[in-house]
Computed example of a mutant assay.
Amino acid sequence: MKKVISLALAAVICSASMLLAACGGNTTKTIATVDDLEGAKIGVQLGTTGDIYASDYEEKGSTVERFNKGADAVLALTQGKIDCVIIDSEPAKAFVAANDGLKILDEPFAEEEYAICVAKDNTELLGKINTALAELKADGTTESIEKNFIGDDTKGKTPYVTPAGTDYPNGELHMATNAFFEPYEYYDGDTVVGIDASMAQAICDKLGYKLVIDDMDFDSIITSVQTGKADFGMAGMTVTDERLQSINFSDSYTTATQVIIVKE
């Protein structure tokens, strides 16, 4: 009798386990290299380059779970709901530092360049931004801004400061961003800070505009710029052929690497 009960109980446990897996429960696939992504559950931030690249693996049997915030994808990884997260290397470092038991694979997933998106019919603003970027690169401002947020030896030591006497006779420029992508944009109290926020401030100082930062979901940024609700978008955004169909991009202001976060 005990054996019959045990077998019945085992069957119930087995059925429950299968149901949990089918409903998105814990997963066990080990990701050690890029080649292991086939058939895996991959977490990405909706609309990002990681999302675009990961989509290619859906044809290879992978499941791509899309989240509004990178932090939500990382949380799902810590809970065992997905096998890995594909995201930019700098935010990845911050997430791994804040969550025990996670690591970044040594093998990079993809390399990319970040740029500022502007509406296709706003060629005048695009030209001004490119001119300002060239000047900021030439005088070392862009490098100084990056060093302020990246690197243990320099982080926090070279903050961008608006030059004395700067005024804004040309009105406002609204920047669309998603402020949950440290160190490019994130909140310090109620203020959005980071590499992109500082770069945008430096550009606006050059052009004589007051910077206004509008925080929104990442996948809303291009639409916001297209419709004129924002003047430009800056959010660790990579230039891709798909995005170029609906938006223009400035010259690149930094290079980045997409990496894979997994459990240790």
Rank of each mutant, 00 (worst) to 15 (best):
E185M: 15
I87L: 07
K137V: 13
M237L: 04
A94R: 02
T240E: 08
Y253P: 15
Y160G: 04
I42P: 00
A179I: 00
D83I: 01
G50I: 02
T78A: 07
A134F: 07
D72G: 01
S62G: 03
A98V: 02
G61L: 04
E185N: 15
A110M: 12
K120I: 07
P183G: 03
V64W: 06
T142A: 09
L20F: 07
I150A: 06
I13K: 04
G70T: 01
A71Q: 13
E124W: 09
G24I: 00
I104H: 02
V193Y: 03
A197Y: 14
R243D: 09
S17N: 11
L19H: 04
Y160L: 02
V192G: 04
L9M: 10
S17R: 03
K81E: 15
Q245T: 15
V34H: 05
K147C: 05
A134D: 15
I86V: 06
K29F: 03
A32F: 04
L75Y: 13
R243G: 15
G208A: 01
V239E: 09
T177P: 08
K69D: 15
V85A: 09
K69E: 15
D214T: 01
Y168K: 00
A32P: 00
T49C: 10
I82A: 12
G233S: 03
D72Y: 05
S15Y: 14
A256N: 15
I116G: 06
V34L: 12
K147T: 00
E112M: 13
E124F: 08
G236E: 05
T123V: 09
K263P: 01
V12C: 13
A164S: 12
Y53K: 12
L20E: 11
V85N: 11
G151L: 11
N122C: 10
D214G: 05
Y253E: 02
K103A: 12
S6K: 10
T63A: 08
Q245L: 10
K128I: 08
L207G: 06
I261G: 13
F181P: 14
C84R: 02
I104P: 00
L173E: 02
V85I: 01
K60T: 02
I247N: 04
K263M: 06
A92S: 11
N68L: 09
T142Q: 07
M18I: 12
K137Y: 10
A76R: 07
S246M: 12
V4M: 05
T30C: 08
S17H: 05
E112W: 13
I82F: 03
I221A: 05
G236W: 13
I52G: 04
A21Y: 15
T30R: 04
F232Y: 09
T257W: 02
V12W: 06
D83E: 10
S89E: 12
E107Q: 06
D214K: 03
F181K: 15
D100H: 11
G165H: 04
I145K: 02
I213W: 11
A16N: 12
I145A: 07
I260A: 06
F109A: 08
I42K: 11
T27C: 14
M237V: 02
N170V: 06
G50H: 01
E185F: 15
Q226E: 11
D190V: 14
C14E: 08
V212E: 12
V118T: 05
V192H: 01
I213M: 06
M18A: 07
Y184H: 14
Y253G: 12
V239C: 06
Q226A: 08
G127D: 02
K263G: 14
A176E: 10
A32R: 11
A94V: 08
D106G: 03
V212N: 09
D214R: 00
V44R: 03
S198H: 01
